Computed example of a mutant assay.
Amino acid sequence: MNDSRTLADRIEDLLPQTQCTKCGYDGCRPYAEAIAAGTASYNQCPPGGAEGVARLAKLLGKSVIPINPDNGVERPRPVAFIDESLCIGCTLCMQACPIDAIVGAPKQMHTIIKDVCTGCDLCVAPCPVDCIAMIPVTGIATGWDAWTQDQADEARVHYGRRQARLASERDAAEARLAARRAAASSTASSASTPGAAPNAASAAEAQSPVTPADDAQAKKKAIIEAALERARRKKAEMAERGDGPRNTENVSADVQAQIDAAHARRRRLGIDESAQDGTDTPAPRRDKNEDTPA
């Protein structure tokens, strides 16, 4: 029986479906397509580890090579943990999670569905209050020894459902926008007929229609500004009590790098909350015995 699947399909079947983007692509499918096209190597998936490289090498008829250190290191699988006492309900982690493993609501505590979480780390950097830690849960087991095919299949289903939901939400938003534009155009047309009273507001809306990108950008900016304001207030209250973030001990080098990148990005954007409210955020500290990956 002939296998009708493409090479990209077969490569994707061998990937762990963590959707972590450590390979340098937006997800497991784009990475699989890049390998199939010859534009990416088959050693760029740290969650799959050495076993993952061996599986891909066998499929491609190539030799087994080490994981590219530029993409990360093979490690025990972690699960995200949210310190709910620090969570401000900004929803940025929920937006970052590729498989909807985080539940919560705006201005409410969020929590991780640990049996769904793939340990992708993508929720760590966006958090404005650094309340997310990645906790290893597989002992010394790494790569495919720390991850099963059933878990990969389930993660793939969750990812597909999220992508379908996002597409549906985009379609609905575009339909609402089209309806508003049609209504504005109709109003402007009526205002231009003889004897009709001019409607300056409708004319202005017709001349400067709001685009989906404008709506999304304004919403994102409002969410970030509101979250940062709540974070500043909470951190000021904690500073008065002499408290600080509680997940700053023994973080991994990967998590530390993401936290540092998040701080640097906020400083570049001019929204470094510690600089604005005069409080200091303790920098997460690595275990002194922890080795930093190459």
Results as ranks from 00 to 15, higher is better:
residue 187 T to A: 11
residue 97 C to L: 09
residue 44 Q to F: 03
residue 201 A to I: 15
residue 117 C to S: 04
residue 22 K to H: 13
residue 211 T to Q: 08
residue 245 P to Y: 15
residue 80 A to D: 05
residue 207 Q to N: 09
residue 200 A to T: 13
residue 172 A to I: 08
residue 50 A to W: 00
residue 156 R to W: 07
residue 194 P to C: 06
residue 174 E to A: 08
residue 43 N to T: 14
residue 291 D to R: 15
residue 267 R to M: 13
residue 124 V to L: 12
residue 239 A to C: 01
residue 200 A to S: 07
residue 95 Q to W: 09
residue 282 P to C: 03
residue 16 P to N: 03
residue 203 A to E: 03
residue 66 P to Y: 00
residue 248 T to V: 12
residue 212 P to E: 03
residue 209 P to G: 06
residue 115 D to A: 11
residue 140 I to D: 12
residue 214 D to S: 09
residue 100 D to A: 06
residue 68 N to F: 00
residue 266 R to N: 11
residue 25 Y to N: 01
residue 92 L to E: 02
residue 76 P to D: 09
residue 27 G to S: 10
residue 12 E to R: 02
residue 70 D to H: 03
residue 119 G to F: 04
residue 83 D to L: 06
residue 153 D to Y: 07
residue 37 A to C: 06
residue 286 R to I: 11
residue 282 P to R: 10
residue 283 A to I: 15
residue 99 I to W: 07
residue 86 L to G: 01
residue 74 E to P: 09
residue 225 E to T: 11
residue 118 T to F: 02
residue 120 C to N: 10
residue 75 R to G: 06
residue 130 D to W: 12
residue 132 I to S: 00
residue 119 G to N: 08
residue 80 A to M: 15
residue 42 Y to W: 10
residue 47 P to Q: 02
residue 99 I to A: 05
residue 145 D to R: 13
residue 210 V to Y: 01
residue 185 S to C: 05
residue 89 G to A: 10
residue 270 G to Q: 06
residue 243 D to R: 15
residue 83 D to K: 02
residue 242 G to C: 04
residue 52 G to Y: 00
residue 59 L to R: 10
residue 7 L to R: 01
residue 92 L to S: 11
residue 72 G to K: 03
residue 105 A to L: 12
residue 54 A to C: 07
residue 101 A to D: 04
residue 25 Y to H: 08
residue 227 A to I: 04
residue 225 E to G: 03
residue 138 T to I: 01
residue 4 S to Y: 15
residue 33 E to R: 10
residue 276 Q to N: 05
residue 274 S to P: 00
residue 59 L to E: 07
residue 213 A to T: 10
residue 279 T to H: 13
residue 178 A to D: 09
residue 11 I to A: 01
residue 1 M to N: 14
